[in-house]
């Protein structure tokens, strides 16, 4: 499926999926018709036929032998992108909350901003708990992003290389740790407001229950603590090889 990507804009769309057979086929077809290029579904050890559905819809599929979590699956896609020298990688969720029709808006915003990474956000969807959490982490890290967890992102080649590295392999969530790593490499983030739906199959995995939220907050605070000091470090030039 790599034949469409010319050398001028080689874009890989990465869709991490775990038990999303109800939606993954449709998402892949819509992405292919809207964006074109190669679509890669990273099947995070699903127990249903996510993998077959994605293949049938025309996606390249990587089946992970055991579940690595959302970030582990997304990173697999970024490593694939690095290995096959894609210029940019787009990630979106397979559950239908991100509309493939919004991808041109995101790509456009990303190109126009000149940033290394663009994050598609939907500020209206944030609950009070999330707003409080994000405010806390904004204060803690100094990263001025509205929605840390959004999986709707575009990464350029520098960001792909930074995130495919060993350093990013021990991150458990794709949010703050990833953003802090990008910032440490001196890469620029840009937010693009987009339209999203509420999740179809159940709610957020992180914000499902209070113990989970507590666990997440604690985990991420420790992560911030481990990275403490980066925010005062002079940013490296974006072009510098990490």
């Amino acid at each position: 499926m790599r034949q469409q990507g010319g050398s001028t804009h080689r874009l890989l769309t990465v869709i991490p999926a775990r038990n999303e057979s109800a939606t993954v086929g449709e998402i892949v077809r819509r992405v292919r018709s809207v964006v074109g290029g190669e679509v890669l579904v990273v099947n995070d050890a699903s127990t249903d036929d996510t993998s077959a559905q994605a293949r049938q819809a025309g996606a390249t599929v990587i089946d992970l032998p055991y579940g690595l979590g959302a970030w582990g699956a997304a990173q697999t896609g970024l490593r694939y992108a690095k290995r096959h020298r894609f210029r940019a990688a787009l990630t979106l969720d397979a559950d239908g909350q991100h509309h493939p029709e919004e991808l041109p808006v995101l790509l456009d915003g990303w190109r126009r901003s000149g940033a290394n990474v663009a994050i598609g956000t939907f500020p209206q969807r944030l609950s009070l708990a999330k707003r409080v959490a994000w405010r806390y982490f904004q204060l803690l890290t100094g990263i001025g992003v509205q929605d840390f967890t959004s999986g709707l992102r575009v990464y350029d080649g520098h960001a792909i290389r930074a995130l495919a590295s060993r350093k990013a392999s021990l991150l458990d969530y794709q949010d703050l740790g990833v953003l802090m790593l990008l910032r440490k490499k001196g890469l620029r983030l840009h937010e693009v407001p987009t339209v999203m739906s509420p999740r179809r199959n159940g709610g957020s995995r992180v914000f499902s229950s209070w113990p989970m939220v507590a666990r997440y907050m604690l985990h991420t605070t420790v992560l911030c603590f481990a990275q403490f000091g980066w925010r005062w470090r002079a940013p490296v030039r974006a072009g510098a090889r990490a």
């Binding site: 990587i62 032998p65 690595l68 694939y80 060993r166 392999s169």
Partner: peptide, 20 residues
Amino acid sequence: RSRSERQLRRLTQKIGILEQ
């Protein structure tokens, strides 16, 4: 253990990519 976990995750990803 953290080092092993990192290596295991990267190996898992590599296996998936190579299998594809």
